[in-house]
Design a binder for these strands. Sequence first.
DNA 1: CTCTAAGCAAGGTTATTCCTCCTTCGGGAC
DNA 2: GTCCCGAAGGAGGAATAACCTTGCTTAGAG
Lengths: 209, 209
Amino acid sequence: MSGSQKVKVYEEVLQQVKAYIEEHHLSPGDKLPSERELSELLNVGRSSIREAFRALELLGLIETRRGEGTFMRTYRPYHMVELLSTFILHEARTKKELAAAKMMLELEVINKILPLLTEVHVEHLTNLVKGTTSEKEAHTLHHSFFQYLFEISGNELLNRMWQLIDGFANTVHDFSFSTSFYEKVLEEMERGKLNNLRSWYEKELNLSN
Amino acid sequence: MSGSQKVKVYEEVLQQVKAYIEEHHLSPGDKLPSERELSELLNVGRSSIREAFRALELLGLIETRRGEGTFMRTYRPYHMVELLSTFILHEARTKKELAAAKMMLELEVINKILPLLTEVHVEHLTNLVKGTTSEKEAHTLHHSFFQYLFEISGNELLNRMWQLIDGFANTVHDFSFSTSFYEKVLEEMERGKLNNLRSWYEKELNLSN
DNA sequence: CTCTAAGCAAGGTTATTCCTCCTTCGGGAC
DNA sequence: GTCCCGAAGGAGGAATAACCTTGCTTAGAG
């Protein structure tokens, strides 16, 4: 009675778990309380705890190992990504928004690392591009290329954002770029200036539409 | 037992639900089978169905209305971005990283709306800036200014990302800008070109360090 | 000291029960 | 005939108990 809570228990549990994590400063790899323990601690049924845990697991935020327990995990787009494809298909708008966000992040990282770039970096990137011949590897190249840039930049936040968006984007759309794109980028990187980058990028996106 | 299933039931359910959706061509708004129905159809416990459903619900892929049933939902990527933001922002929260992400988004939105800008828009923004005198209102100005730009751009994903970062950043640090910044931006907006924007931005950020 | 088996803790899964909310539908009042 | 109200059924929300499997720990046999 007392005015019926609109909030579902499992949502409340999610909040509590989040609070627990922050309070105890849990990092990836650390163990969360057991389902039974939490169930008693929060005064909710074990099923509700499990519903919350399964949700977090699908998100890729926790990992649960049978016979051992539930653990924090470094976030990586995961099971979720595969599922999304079924649900997104029709949304042309979502597609565009994801592409825009992805481009923004990738342009930004290039901009940021430009002053930090050394010959070693350029060489590494050149090898990546030259080592890619088949179209099949095209996506891998794109990912490695930019992942490397994000590592150079050292900005963990931007990196996370990119990984997130990249994961989503790839379920919706094939973002393969022509190798000439990377070659041009490298060329101008060595010159230390990237003026037309945005327009190249947009050209590539139109091609693959 | 025949090599022990490693796959959890709720994961299997997820696949089955996905298959069901594709097979029956369900679109947003359509109803999914009830928990009890699915439970019987797939020969699994209702709890397992619920675990799968709660996970999908958290991702924003389905919506479940008590007393009515479970329905497909229009996918919105920013829903997920929001969920993950807590954890992502939590991982990397130096002022520098936050500022970089914020700047990136704000520069991006300016870039995007530039071709769409009309006199009406510019006038609205001018009034915002001129109507702000006290420092106390400085943050409000910044928020209204860019919120308006994001609305013009119509990109909900970028908007949501910005709101999350802006909100988080302001609880941790003070990011006030001088009014001359907005004046300069407006000036160049009317000229239709924004060359030095990035450097102005960085100058402002250094001031507030 | 080493190996093994028992025991325990933790997740995996199902079933039952009860509750609350929403929709539907039928009967009676007007 | 129309409108309103209430009962019934359907659907999700939640708790609890029971039982299984897995993995770790540990005490005891050798």
